Amino acid sequence: MRILVIHTGGTIGMAQTDQGFAPKDGVIEEALDQIRSNHTDLGTIRLMPLTPAIDSGEATTAEWNRIAMAVFTELGNYDAFVITHGTDSLSYSAAAMVMALRGIDVPVILTGSMIPLTVENSDGMRNLTDALIACRSAQPGVWVQFAGRLLHGSRVYKAHSSDLDAFTDSPSEMPPLFASPFPTIAQTSPHKVLTFTIAPGAMFGLLKTAVQQGEALVLRCYGSGTAPNDPELRDALSLAAKRNVPVVAVSQCPAGGMNIGTYQAGQILRDGGVIDGRGMTAEMAHVKLHYALETDDPHAFMATEFCGEM
């Protein structure tokens, strides 16, 4: 089986320095040399710049485009892809790969580690080995392999900041694959996508300023879709509607999702034309808005389920 490993940086490829952990050249390659005997047809790519490799906390839409293009240009040469990635923004990149790599007929598996490969008792070797093994049985689409589990790329999120079992997902009957009659790639620009969390006493006047300056908004709501009947929130949502700024509501709860019509306290969202994100994670909502803004009808794009994200 032909597998291409694309190294993008992150903790898995770091080593200790005087300033703390930092990317080190050759770490991933040395690990792959140790397990290459079971995966003889194994290619590697390190995305430029080589030194330092990107820290996932610094990832932008440009990195999404680079990683997706690295996969897309090699589709005919490999049967599966493994992407090593930092954990801080891994769930965002997984969502972006689902949105970007459409109609692919191979598995694309992201992985990383909480402890560098260069440190004793690292989880990196296990995760990397498991990702390579998963390539043999995973369905086409984008997945995350972490701590012994293969997770849905459209539904995955980081649930713990330090545990080795840091990621989880929510179930979906749809595979993490954006359907297309033939493989194609979608790319995105660095749009002004903002996130606002509703909280007691939240400064909704700032939300109106954000709507004036932004292109799209993720609104993190209480429970299954409630929000205070605040005049400044109402003004902000009204302005968003006038400016054709898509506003997507997602739940602050890690499970259960949204249903804006459940409570009367969600009326302000319905009146404001807010898009019901249903079961979307905040990470997917943020990413999907970037790709929605590349379409002729961002509102319709956001309201449509493509890959189990909702």
Score class of each variant (00 low, 15 high):
T17D: 06
C253L: 04
V156N: 06
S91H: 14
P183I: 14
I198T: 11
L150P: 00
T60R: 03
S162C: 14
C253D: 01
D165P: 12
N77C: 13
A68K: 07
V247H: 01
Y263Q: 13
A240F: 03
T87W: 07
I45M: 08
M284W: 04
M302I: 00
L4V: 09
D130K: 05
M1Q: 01
M1H: 02
I198P: 08
A59T: 14
S224Q: 10
L194T: 07
T184L: 15
W64R: 10
H85F: 05
T51M: 14
T281M: 04
F81A: 09
I3Y: 09
I260Y: 01
Q145M: 12
A179D: 14
V142F: 04
P52S: 14
G103F: 11
G223I: 01
M114H: 13
Y92P: 07
D123I: 09
I133S: 00
I54Q: 11
D88T: 14
P49Q: 12
I268C: 12
A282Y: 02
W64G: 03
L219W: 05
I83Y: 04
A210I: 13
A210C: 12
F72S: 09
I83K: 01
P181V: 00
F72L: 12
A241N: 13
W64L: 00
S162T: 15
Q19H: 12
R126G: 07
E215M: 05
